[in-house]
Amino acid sequence: MDKDQVLRDQLVKLLQGGQAYQPLEVYLSGISAEVAGKTAADLPYTIWQLIDHMRFTLHDILDFSRNPGYVEPNWPDDYWPKEKSPKSQQALDECIKDLKEGMQEMIRLVQDQNHNLYEPFPHGSGQNLLREAMLVAEHNAYHLGQIMVLRRLLGDWEV
C-alpha cells in the first residue's frame, strides 16, 4: 500500500473517532431537546449550541475545501447559535443528522484520490485538505469532550 493511501486511511479513522475517544454517534445518541437546551453552572453554552456550532463549522470547512469562491462567515456570530435550545426534538435530530452527513462528506473527500491532500487551496493562505481534515477531527474531539462533560453534569450520561 502506498504512503498516500495509508495516510488517507489513518485520517478516516481519526475523523470517525473510536481510537482515543468514542465516535460522534456515541456522544450524541439519545440526547433529548430538553437536555440539549439546559445549562450547567458556570458554563456559557448548552449541548444544543455545541452541536449546532459543530455542524455549522464542519459545513464551513467543507465549503472552504471545495469552493474556490468561498466567502468566510462572520466570526463568532455566524458560528454559534444564539438560541440556548433547539426549537424541537425534530430540529435537534435534523442538526445531528446534518452533522453526521457532513462527516461522511469529509471522509469521502479524504478517501477520493482525485483530491490532493497536500496541495494548497488556491483561494486560501496555505491550507490544504490534509490540514482541513485534521482541523475537523481536532474541533470535533474538543467539543465532543465538552458534550460528554455537560451530559454528565446534567445527569444524562451513564458512567
Rank of each mutant, 00 (worst) to 15 (best):
Q10W: 11
I96S: 01
R55Q: 14
A40M: 09
D78S: 14
G102Y: 01
L62T: 06
S65M: 12
W80S: 07
P122Q: 08
D78T: 07
L117E: 02
T46Q: 03
S29A: 15
L50M: 10
E72D: 01
V136G: 02
D9S: 13
H59L: 02
K38C: 14
V35L: 02
E138A: 15
P44I: 03
W75N: 11
S65V: 05
K84C: 04
L14D: 05
Y21A: 14
E119D: 09
V71G: 00
D112V: 09
S29W: 04
S32N: 04
S32Q: 05
A133I: 09
P86Q: 06
P81G: 04
E101Q: 15
D93Y: 02
I147G: 02
N116T: 12
P81C: 06
E25W: 01
Q19S: 12
D78R: 03
S88R: 02
K84Q: 12
A20V: 13
Q113N: 09
I31V: 13
K38S: 11
H139G: 07
L135P: 00
E72V: 05
P81H: 09
Y118I: 09
L7C: 02
N140F: 15
P68Q: 03
L117A: 09
L129C: 07
L7H: 04
G124H: 01
V12T: 12
E72A: 15
L7E: 05
H59V: 09
L43V: 15
Q16Y: 00
S65G: 11
Q113P: 06
K84E: 09
H139M: 05
N74L: 14
M134A: 08
I96P: 00
V12P: 00
G69K: 13
L15K: 08
P122G: 06
P120Y: 03
Y45R: 11
N140G: 07
L135D: 01
P44Y: 03
I47N: 02
I61R: 12
V35D: 00
I147K: 02
L117P: 10
Q146M: 09
D52C: 09
A40G: 04
H53Q: 10
M103E: 02
I47G: 03
